[in-house]
């Protein structure tokens, strides 16, 4: 199927869904205060934007996300490479790291709130912890599966250990690292919103919490859509970074 045709078919299903939802909600076939309907959601969105409530809360959430996610990429890749290259360290830390990785990060929220307070910093830590493990573990796997000829080629030209890392190991494991970042992205968003819902003063999660205790379906739907769009934009950004880095994919070799 061509790209444009796929777009048309995809859009058709969305439009059909919106029409059905509008019909069911507006005609009160299901109580509209429970499910709302698209035009009302749109009105709520405009209202929340106009009052500045959505913008100021989204800014807080976005800042927490960036402050946690960017370091998790940097340190996730560094730790992943080190773990892959230093065998004793890997053997030492593997059980611990696997245990932390397997535990749902939202279970850490209460203790982080105790440690770092109800402010933004505990959310930054949640984002960091949620994202760093999949990034680190994927990087480690990618690095340990580097093909021997790549290392041999780089070494044969007299590359030092750092050049082996930058010219062969990192680009060679980039597909695995990008997959790790995508996994980390999803986990970070879940962790962040959950943490804000649990205890917070501001943020999108906090708004969801407030409006859900007031049973305001329209507002909640607006917020969920905002989060979904944010996630989609992040994935699209990652994909464009990936494309810019070349058409290298491990399945081509």
């Amino acid at each position: 199927m061509t790209l444009s045709r796929r777009l048309v078919v995809g859009a058709a299903s969305v439009v059909a869904f919106l029409i059905l939802w509008q019909f069911v909600g507006q005609r009160e076939i299901v109580r509209s205060d429970l499910i709302s309907y698209p035009t009302e959601v749109l009105g709520t969105f405009i209202h929340l934007t106009a009052t500045g409530e959505l913008g100021s809360n989204a800014a807080v959430t976005l800042q927490e996300f960036v402050e946690g996610f960017v370091p998790s990429i940097v340190f996730g890749i560094i730790f992943g490479v080190v773990l892959a290259l230093v065998k004793p360290l890997r053997e030492l830390l593997d059980p611990l790291l696997t245990a932390i990785y397997t535990a749902p990060t939202i279970a850490f929220i209460p203790i982080f709130v105790v440690w770092f307070g109800v402010g933004t910093f505990s959310k930054v830590v949640i984002v960091f912890i949620s994202a760093i493990f999949p990034i680190m573990i994927n990087t480690r796997v990618g690095v340990s599966e580097i093909a021997e000829p790549w290392l041999r080629a780089v070494r044969s030209f007299g590359a030092g250990q750092l050049q082996v890392v930058t010219k062969a190991i990192l680009p060679g494991s980039m597909p695995a690292i990008m997959a790790g970042i995508r996994l980390g992205l999803g986990r970070a968003i879940v962790g962040l919103i959950a943490a804000e819902m649990y205890v917070s003063i501001t943020g999108i999660g906090r708004m969801i919490q407030v409006y859900s205790s007031a049973a305001r379906a329209s507002e909640i739907i607006v917020l969920v859509v905002v989060i979904a769009v944010f996630g989609y934009v992040c994935v699209a950004l990652l994909r464009s970074v990936e494309n810019r880095m070349g058409t290298w994919r491990s399945d081509l070799e």
Binding site: P149, W150, R152, A153, V154, R155, S156, F157, G158, K167, A168, P171, G172, M174, M245, G246, W248, L252, E253
Partner: peptide
Amino acid sequence: PGPDRALVFQDFALLPWR
């Protein structure tokens, strides 16, 4: 290894992302 000697390999050893 030094620039005075260069290797050519049976498996080519090219970097697939370049």
